[in-house]
Amino acid sequence: MPMASLAHLSREERLGLGIAAAAHVALVAALVWQVRDDPTPLPIPERMTVSLADEVSLESTAPDPSAEPQAALAPVLSPEPEPVVEPEVVREVPLPVPRPTVTSRPTPPATERPTPTPTPRATPTRQASGTRLGDDFLQGVGGSERSNDRGSPAAAFGAAEQASLVQAISRQLKPHWSAPQGVDAERLVTVLAWELNPDGSLKGRPRVVTQSGINDSNRPQASLHAERAIRAVQLAAPFDLPEGYYDQWKSIRNARFDRNL
């Protein structure tokens, strides 16, 4: 069928058609050849531990704003600025102590008085700053006028807190946990349970809840796997965990130790 339709083309047209077809084939071949080369591998990003809280807690765990916060008090200005004390940084020229009567300009407000040292300091020392803020200038931030209640960090122990607690424990265990080597050893999984004292130290010895992934090839490494997991817990203790949540982390029921590259 295709041959018949070509019959009524002139010779030049047929030749051009043939060359064009050949050029197309060559182009496709060249593209395929290029694609065959391995692309440059992307750099592998650094590992990052991510713990997800996939439950939505039914109770609010956001910090409670205090019912009656203390009214914010404006800092009381002292009539005279405190005398400037030489700061630790050596300066050639001591800045003049501002005198309210020197200039005709209105006395700038205390908060705008520049700190005399040119180098920035991490924590301003009030004595040397020459400000007119008193020591009590933070008084009244947060809290109620009638109570010192500053609000609680969280209303309840929810999924987000659990996730961060779990992450803290995992993070402390991980440097000490190395699984044994062997044929199929990466399939072994040991689950431990242990108790902790309020200061984070181990209460008693971790016990093996269960093991899985054991086959004939890795059976000799199974007890070694459990031993190493227990060792990881013993070396990680005492754990550094928030005391406020001791009730939540005093007992670890199912700590699963495995290996995955």
């Binding site: 030049e12 030749l15 051009g16 060359i19 050029a23």
Partner: peptide, 19 residues
């Protein structure tokens, strides 16, 4: 004109095909 086009086409085909 056609002959030049032919020559150019053939030359480019040969350049493309690197067997």
């Amino acid at each position: 004109m056609q002959k030049i086009a032919l020559v150019v086409t053939v030359a480019s085909v040969l350049a493309l095909s690197a067997c």
